[in-house]
Amino acid sequence: MKPALVILDVQEVLLPLIWRSAELVGRIASLARAARESGVPVVAFQQIGESGSFFDPEQPRTRPADGLALQPSDVVIRKTATDAFYGTELAAVLVEREIDTLVITGVSTDYCVDATVRSSLSHGFDVVLVEDGHAPVTEGDPAAGLAPEQIVERHNRILSTGMHPGGSVRVVPAAEVAFG
Rank of each mutant, 00 (worst) to 15 (best):
M1G: 14
P3T: 10
A4S: 08
V6R: 02
V6K: 01
L8Y: 01
D9S: 08
D9A: 11
V10T: 14
V10A: 07
E12H: 15
V13F: 13
V13P: 12
L17S: 14
L17C: 13
R20H: 12
A22H: 15
A22R: 15
E23F: 05
V25I: 09
G26M: 03
R27M: 08
I28T: 05
A29L: 10
A29M: 08
A29S: 14
A32Y: 00
R36Q: 04
R36A: 03
E37F: 02
S38V: 06
S38E: 12
V43S: 03
A44L: 03
A44N: 02
Q47P: 08
Q47C: 12
G49P: 03
G49C: 07
G52Y: 00
G52K: 03
S53W: 02
F55D: 08
F55K: 03
F55E: 02
D56P: 06
P57V: 09
E58T: 15
E58P: 11
T62D: 07
R63P: 08
P64Q: 11
D66G: 15
L70I: 10
P72F: 11
V76C: 07
V76G: 09
K79G: 02
T80W: 12
D83A: 01
A84W: 04
F85C: 09
F85Y: 13
Y86H: 14
G87E: 07
E89I: 15
E89Q: 15
A92M: 09
V93L: 07
V95C: 12
E98S: 15
I99C: 04
T101V: 09
I104A: 08
T105L: 00
G106D: 01
D110Q: 14
Y111Q: 13
V113R: 07
A115M: 11
T116F: 04
S120V: 04
L121P: 06
S122P: 08
F125V: 06
D126H: 07
D126V: 04
D126A: 12
V127M: 01
V130H: 00
V130Y: 01
G133K: 02
G133I: 01
H134L: 03
H134C: 00
A135H: 07
A135I: 07
A135F: 05
P136I: 04
P136W: 00
V137N: 12
D141E: 13
A144S: 14
L146P: 11
A147R: 14
A147D: 11
P148E: 02
E149D: 15
I151T: 10
E153W: 15
R154L: 13
H155V: 08
N156I: 12
I158D: 07
L159W: 03
T161G: 13
G162P: 11
M163V: 14
H164Q: 11
R170V: 10
R170I: 00
R170A: 11
A178H: 12
F179A: 11
